[in-house]
Nucleic acid binder design. Structure first.
Lengths: 257, 257
DNA sequence: CGCGGGTTTGAATGAGTTCAATCACGGTGG
DNA sequence: CCACCGTGATTGAACTCATTCAAACCCGCG
């Protein structure tokens, strides 16, 4: 339950961090070479089965994680079992970047699907990025973007209706997948059950099902157990008040001074 | 409406940043002297009247802000006027720490009460903290704590009932005020109208009023227009599932390597 | 000045409505 | 076979609308 697959220990002949590199290159001018120093660091590639814990509340945070493949969730469980998923973590996302040695996690992270993670000691990570300005700026940018996603999540669960929440989340996930794949695709693979969307959006699983029916009958989407096809992106965006600038591809004019 | 009071320009004989220093000293081993370099930087103290805009969506982010006095809010407005307050910013809080030159704000910041802010150019700020490890660790810690507050806000609006939300928020604000004042006080000054609590908690102002009535008749609190007295902290904490470790005073075992 | 009336802003509370939760059961696909 | 999804029926928490009340604020006038 707890541990990942520790068999894959790589240090020299590391595979490139494709997902992360792709994502970052769509936004900034960082080059793949910038990641070489990072890839040469001692680190582990770990594979977690669905539902496996990755970080448990109270764990000491001394590693930085990069999602290579699969989806992970960050969540809290309330005393009576209610669960709130704070956010989904997709390939190319990093987390626990802002660790402080000695700090403990205030939430859980678990594998939503089968997940492959790259795990680097915070100490090694910090010294590696401090040697490369483009690299450190890239991770800084990743942390800024993640904070923006958290804020959007607050607005979504705080002030949007169920229909808006679901529509908005579909479009956000679609954009985030696009950020690593390199292109917007009208098909969004959704490898998690509806109950996970429910726990992310503060709704019941029954109501997620009903809301998807609504989106279907209105012709916004078509969906199966494995994913969602966006049929009317314009209409869906308008219905759910999705800001077209949110998470938009746009190279940052990063001033490195 | 837009501009603050630009009259107060200080650079050499700066007043100490009391609120921030107090807050940080309760958590870490930073000394007041560490802040001297920062206080000597060119910066402005600006005063904003209630409801005045501080940062507007789309503004270029090139300053770091420190709240000296009063409360500010960070929020987004939806097309039809619904407002979600992402978080409150209290004396001692800092924001826009994680700016990237060239980035634009995706949300608004406004004065909730009369607010005094210290405003430092990001560039100056970054070069100042990079010269002092204890200082940079302190701000790093502040950013980590703020992220924790955002996550807690997601859980609150996503999965807690109205009663829990209000109770939980009261206890959080009480702790945050305590972090700068230095001691837990059973009286929480609440200088904002109930409608602001409503917009922070994703509820209607009417329901905030009803919920406070409930908390009153149950003997948890007593409240006036200006603040809330916590009569039964234990009971309130249990009712609202407030984790006693959340935001607790506790010097971080910060490993500065 | 300071006092009183008019206006504004905020809070409490009742009545009726609505959106989403819960309960329940049947279907389906891996 | 079991986790997941769909859909009907019922319940409930929070919303809206509407009104009253209270406090704060303004401002001119004695």
């Amino acid at each position: 339950m707890y541990a990942g697959d520790y068999d894959l220990f790589l240090s020299q002949k590391a595979k490139p961090m494709n997902a992360l590199i792709n994502r970052i290159r769509h936004y900034s001018t960082t080059e793949s070479e910038d990641f070489e120093g990072l890839a040469k660091l001692p680190h582990r590639l770990e594979v977690y089965e669905p539902h496996a814990d990755i970080v448990v509340e109270g764990d000491k945070i001394d590693h930085v994680f990069i999602v290579e493949d699969g989806w992970a969730i960050r969540f809290r469980i309330l005393d009576d079992g209610r669960r709130q998923i704070v956010n989904f973590m997709l390939p190319g996302d990093c987390f626990d970047l802002m660790s402080l040695n000695g700090a403990k996690s205030d939430h859980n992270v678990a594998a939503a699907t089968k997940v492959t993670l790259r795990k680097i000691k915070s100490k090694d990570f910090l010294s590696a990025i401090s040697e490369n300005l483009r690299l450190s700026t890239s991770f800084w940018w990743a942390a800024v973007q993640e904070e923006g996603i958290l804020r959007e999540q607050i607005v979504r669960v705080g002030r949007r209706s169920a229909k808006e929440r679901v529509g908005h989340m579909i479009l956000e996930l679609n954009r985030r997948v696009a950020a690593t794949s390199g292109q917007i695709d009208n098909y969004l693979p959704l490898p998690v059950p509806q109950s996970m969307l429910a726990d992310a959006l503060g709704l019941s699983d029954v109501h997620i099902s009903r809301t998807l029916s609504f989106l279907r009958t209105f012709g916004y989407i078509r969906n199966s157990r494995h994913g969602i096809e966006i049929l009317d992106r314009e209409g869906l965006a308008e219905m759910s008040d999705f800001d077209s600038r949110y998470l938009h591809f746009e190279k940052l004019a990063i001033d490195v001074n």
